[in-house]
């Protein structure tokens, strides 16, 4: 380990030396090897290589050398045909696109409910001691209940349809939004609040132009965690009781003992979670463009 670390350290030093040298000769006559190394060292290239490596190991372990027991762990070819099946022929009562649409819809609705209730509640708790005293005991008691523990009650109340799932997602995504918005308000520099009061800021503007902007970086942290919680909860809820959705696909595939279809379901969740998080990050970057951390 130690020798490895020092070897890496040495390599870094060499590279900075190269930079210094190439700068002094105005970048001319770069040796071919280091040019390659520089190109390979670019983050997107590294990422692509990493994905390729995983694919390669997958092929090697299943199709080529059969290291994994056949029938338990799907080969890439099996995965591909299951993906085509779910996309075109349909599986578990619908095509993959239909399942995805249903799941995505529930997550977006549940997340939106959590955002619209959680963030204002957190802001309120952060800016008013009274509100904090009223809400905090109830919130502290509800918080440790895992969102999945609400599923039985949700199904009892609202049945196996969408409403029960939205409720559970809402509850799960609600908590991080509240906590982070609250922490965000509490973390605002006291002198900024004092400055705003000194400048005669009316209440509405205090919230809109001082408290919300001050808490915004943490509000977004909360929303990211909320989104993650929404997906986790949705899949779990659909696996317990549903008639459609990606979690339902996973459940049916398990009962059918169909590993490659399970993998299709899992990767679909992965892609969905990743792309919604990415969309949120785009919004965050735009909104936080004015913030010191957001720009660096």
């Amino acid at each position: 380990m130690a020798t490895e670390a020092s070897a890496v350290g040495l390599d870094r030093n060499q590279r900075t030396d190269e930079k210094a040298v190439s700068a002094s000769v105005a970048g001319r006559k770069l040796p071919g090897r280091s040019k390659w190394r520089k190109m390979l060292a670019r983050p997107p290239v590294i990422s692509a290589l990493s994905v390729a490596a995983v694919l390669l190991i997958w092929f090697a372990a299943t199709s080529w050398f059969q290291l994994a027991p056949a029938g338990r762990f799907p080969t890439p070819q099996e995965f591909w045909s299951s993906l085509r099946q779910s996309l075109f022929a349909g599986y578990a009562g619908g095509t993959l696109v239909g399942h995805v649409w249903n799941s995505l819809r529930l997550v977006v609705i549940g997340f939106a409910c959590a955002f619209l209730t959680g963030v204002p509640l957190g802001l309120l708790m952060g800016s008013s001691r009274t509100a904090e005293a009223v809400i905090n005991p109830i919130f502290s008691l509800m918080r440790p209940i895992p969102p999945l523990a609400w599923i039985p009650l949700a199904i009892l109340w609202l049945g196996l349809g969408s409403a029960a799932k939205v409720m559970v997602i809402w509850l799960a995504a609600f908590v991080p939004s509240v906590i982070n918005s609250y922490t965000g308000v509490r973390g605002i520099d006291k002198s900024l609040i004092a400055a705003a009061r000194m400048l005669g800021t009316p209440r509405g503007r205090m919230i809109g132009e001082v408290i919300v902007p001050g808490a915004l970086p943490l509000i977004f942290t909360g929303l990211r965690l909320s989104l993650q919680a929404a997906w986790t909860t949705l899949v779990a809820a659909e696996m317990v009781g549903a008639l459609t959705g990606v979690g339902f696909v996973l459940n049916v595939a398990q009962q059918d003992i169909y590993p490659s279809m399970i993998l299709v379901g899992m990767l679909t969740v992965g892609v969905l979670g990743w792309s919604t998080t990415w969309a949120l990050a785009v919004v965050e970057r735009r909104m936080l463009a004015r913030w010191p951390q957001g720009r660096s």
């Binding site: 004092a194 000194m198 132009e209």
Partner: peptide, 16 residues
């Protein structure tokens, strides 16, 4: 109130 303007040691400018 704005009739008594304060200049703070840590500036207290709105970063956004």
């Amino acid at each position: 109130g704005p009739d008594r303007a304060v200049v703070f040691q840590q500036f207290a400018l709105f970063p956004w």
